[in-house]
């Protein structure tokens, strides 16, 4: 039997380059983003639907939308 693979889109932050400005946090319609200790943005993957708004908003362009297996 063929294994059914389900793909899902999620936002991924380049933690090393994130400036923790919080632009993504403001734009996220699902409230899936928090700024961890004023250091970097963290995406709650259980809430993220991969809409890409944060990636578009991020002034440093360090958020990518990636395909992940669920």
């Amino acid at each position: 039997m063929n294994e059914v693979k389900r793909m899902s889109r999620k936002a991924q932050v380049d933690e090393n380059l994130c400036v923790a400005c919080g632009c993504c946090l403001k734009i996220c319609p699902l409230g899936a983003i928090t700024i961890f200790n004023g250091i970097r943005a963290i995406i709650d993957e259980t809430r993220c639907v991969g809409c890409g708004k944060c990636a578009k908003e991020c002034p440093a362009s360090v958020i990518d939308i990636i395909e992940v297996n669920v």
């Binding site: 400036v19 923790a20 400005c21 004023g38």
Partner: peptide, 17 residues
Amino acid sequence: FKPRSWCVYCPMGTMTQ
């Protein structure tokens, strides 16, 4: 660039981070 590009290199932002 993007509207809030200043946030990337804002000295206050870098310092608080």
